[in-house]
Design a protein around this nucleic acid. Structure first.
Lengths: 246, 246
DNA sequence: TACGTCCATATGTCTAGACAAAGTATTGAC
DNA sequence: GTCAATACTTTGTCTAGACATATGGACGTA
């Protein structure tokens, strides 16, 4: 409930937009605890004047943080810092990215890499004609030398050139992004089932062990399908963490 | 790639903000197909003038739709309509809400409703002292007279008055919202495991059947925990659908 | 033909204000 | 003392512009 005078250094010669400079610095102070949860910000007029910005610009900074769930605004009341405990809404990341960020050192074994016509259901998801040839990728992901996931991916040819070497050392999404593909939006479905004998064998599980399944279709910024994935994870070693807002 | 002159009727006497009137109408035309995917919008200056709005206001409409994934903007190029196929990022909803919206007619059986000290792990999640008494709720959810999920919820007392009658006919989130609790953000974890004998019995599954597990902690707009849920779903009959962005 | 420069176009950022509306606190009447 | 009307604070919406910058095509030159 406290109210602190706020002072932020702004570099007007920087190419970074002013509103973003403010938002970033505010976010840093909130997440580091420098500005405590529950703190009420000064009013926008005052803040804008203190920072030497116009109100719309300052408002934009605040809006950014409100969208990210770090601040709440109430008309007639003010703007308040809320829990930084949970962060971004949920972003488009790959298992490889996630593990790397978590400090794990994922290892990938490419079981299969081919260019061929995918199963009909996949072709439908990819929105291509049934006999169109696409990259078909089958990989096994390890962490700490334990198998974690069996992954099947399907990517239209022409977007990116893939080979086993690359796939073993980088995430598929990294490769796609590096090739200039903008991964924009994805719809995915998370379910569960028991492992088949074949799955159990490669994942070092017993038959009937619980698996998490994840089917994902990824679209670029103009709505074209750029990847379809169908993966299974060892439930004993993996779970999906997500943050919802409203 | 086509470009259409756009005309939207704006009601300046309406309490609905102008930017929102425009955004809503645009969204309607895009989702109905009235404005085709791929269409390029006129430039902002022209649009603003045509609609009798200032550019910032018009921009705000467009921004709203960009955030929702219906439009893409490129500096120096223009604004284009993209696939409306996938929608909002993911919102805070309950199973009951989801089923009702899907036209199913969920039925709820309240197995237990008590006020008592929860297990330690739950007290930790709720951020209350270990011996604090809270609502402990155990419910069985049916659709089409088939059991679908076994749900355990924990709610601090004092937020809302609960009874079996209410819980049987409304979703927990509905009740919370109606009591003035603002559900703001949630973090959840989705996993899988095999059904125990007891779970199999109430869910009408065989022992060892795959179950989806979902543990959720919900916070209000000032970061206070307002609900903890720990649920299991029959994997054969349920999956989580989500949309990711970035 | 091939390539680089320049320019037109469109969005991105920013300013300085005005009025509206919601919520809170204060004041006044009964 | 209680309750309703009022004043004040704060965010919400909107205007009318200015300058910056990325993109893509046209034009001219080698």
């Amino acid at each position: 409930m406290t109210e602190t005078p706020l002072s932020i250094a702004i570099d007007r010669s920087s190419p970074v937009p002013l509103y973003f400079q403010v938002a970033q610095e505010l976010e840093r102070r909130i997440t580091t605890g420098e500005i405590a949860v529950g703190t009420r910000l000064e009013n926008e007029l005052l803040l804008a004047e203190r920072l030497g910005l116009s109100r719309p610009t300052l408002r934009r900074s605040i809006e950014y943080l409100v969208d990210r769930g770090l601040l709440v605004r109430k008309r007639g009341v003010g703007t308040q810092v809320v829990m930084p405990r949970v962060r971004r809404p949920l972003q488009l990341s790959s298992l490889y990215d996630d593990l790397t960020r978590a400090g794990e050192h994922p290892r990938t074994e490419v079981l299969r890499l081919a260019v061929e016509a995918p199963p009909d259901a996949i072709a439908t998801s990819l929105e291509v004609a049934p006999d169109t040839e696409v990259y078909v990728i089958e990989r096994l992901r390890y962490t700490r030398d334990e198998p974690l996931a069996l992954m099947h991916n399907y990517v239209p040819v022409g977007l990116v050139a893939l080979d086993e070497e690359k796939l073993a050392h980088q995430g598929l999404y990294q490769l796609l992004r590096a090739a200039g593909v903008s991964l924009k939006i994805a719809s995915q479905s998370i379910g569960a089932r028991n492992a088949t004998a074949a799955e159990a064998r490669v994942l070092d599980e017993s038959r009937g062990a619980p698996l998490l399944t994840m089917d994902r279709t990824v679209y670029d910024d103009v709505g074209k399908v750029v990847e379809v994935g169908s993966h299974v994870y060892r439930a004993a070693r993996y779970s999906f963490e997500l943050t919802l807002t409203d």
